[in-house]
């Protein structure tokens, strides 16, 4: 499934940027001069002794949507999971280098990953609501984080922000599994919003969805951008072009000739417009125009 997308998406991408659809959107918003929410310096993540992504240095700016693109296996998921310390859950994963979050070393001593995740929410590739009611899915986060809240109000507000309210307002007590895949994914976004995070990480949030559901989530992301900083991993070039302000392109390089192990590297990071219209690196150009092998 993923592979099909990887193959299909770049083929469509050139058309998208030549018609200017993507770029127009990016031009409407001046790149934020906001402060860096995250500053990543020389970040290397390994699983056991195998590095998955090496020496990444970049900044994520407040109020922007940053897209991470690149071929399968180049470490995008590994990378995005560093921002909320989700990799802590994988015993073999090791993170070196530095990520600061508003100037605080995210991996520093005394930083509680639980506190990090309360501020940096995450939406996953597969819609994965809890086997509970729609309302309970929303209130889960506020409950576990000990927020003081009015359940009705927070359910309504979160679902409205996630553009799901009108579809589910009359069945808030139904199981979340009674929703369609696209609705479930918006529920997951609503659930992430309910704890009022600062940043939302999205790892291929639309890859299990049809184009219409995808479109709705893209619209939603632009609305959410008003309040939240968003980082999104996507295999869909058009999506990156349509929704993001900045794009980071990663590749998977072969580590050595003898063994086949590959690790990811950041090739180019720039305004989305530049990445798609005027990439500096030939590998980026090959990838965004679909010439990538």
């Amino acid at each position: 499934m993923d592979r099909a997308r990887t193959a299909a998406a770049p083929a469509e991408a050139p058309a998208a940027h030549r018609t200017g659809v993507a770029v127009e959107h990016a031009e409407q918003r001046p790149p934020s001069d906001g402060e860096a929410v995250f500053a990543v310096r020389d970040l290397t993540v390994s699983y056991g002794s195998n590095p998955a992504i090496v020496d990444v240095t970049m900044e994520i700016r407040r109020g922007e949507i940053t897209a991470l693109i690149g071929p399968s296996g180049c470490g995008k998921s590994t990378f995005i999971r560093c921002f909320n310390r989700m990799n802590d859950l994988i015993p073999t994963a090791r993170v070196r280098g530095e990520i600061t979050y508003h100037g605080v070393d995210l991996y520093g001593k005394g930083v509680d990953p639980v506190e990090v995740r309360r501020r940096v929410g995450m939406v996953f590739q597969k819609p994965n609501p809890f086997p509970k009611s729609i309302a309970d899915n929303i209130t889960f986060g506020p409950k576990v984080t000990g927020m003081k809240f009015d359940p009705d109000e927070i359910v309504e507000r979160s679902l409205k922000r996630a553009a799901l309210w009108d579809e589910v307002r009359n069945k808030l007590d139904d199981s979340a599994y009674s929703l369609s895949g696209g609705q479930q994914q918006r529920l997951c976004i609503a659930r992430a919003i309910a704890v009022d995070p600062d940043v939302i990480l999205m790892d291929e949030p639309c890859s299990a969805l049809d184009p219409i559901a995808t479109g709705r989530i893209e619209d939603l992301m632009r609305e959410l951008q008003e309040r939240y900083t968003i980082i999104i991993v996507t295999h869909n070039m058009q999506q990156a072009a349509r929704v993001s302000d900045r794009t980071a392109f990663f590749t998977a390089e072969v580590e050595s000739e003898e063994n086949d192990h590959r690790f990811g590297r950041l090739v180019e990071y720039d305004l989305t417009e530049n990445i798609f219209k005027n990439p500096q690196d030939s590998r980026t150009e090959d990838y965004v125009t679909g010439r990538f092998g």
Binding site: L89, V114, R117, F124, F140, R191
Partner: peptide
């Protein structure tokens, strides 16, 4: 994925 969702929302 369910566990990760929980952790992702700041659950201990």
């Amino acid at each position: 994925g369910l566990r990760e969702s929980g952790y992702g929302l700041g659950a201990t």
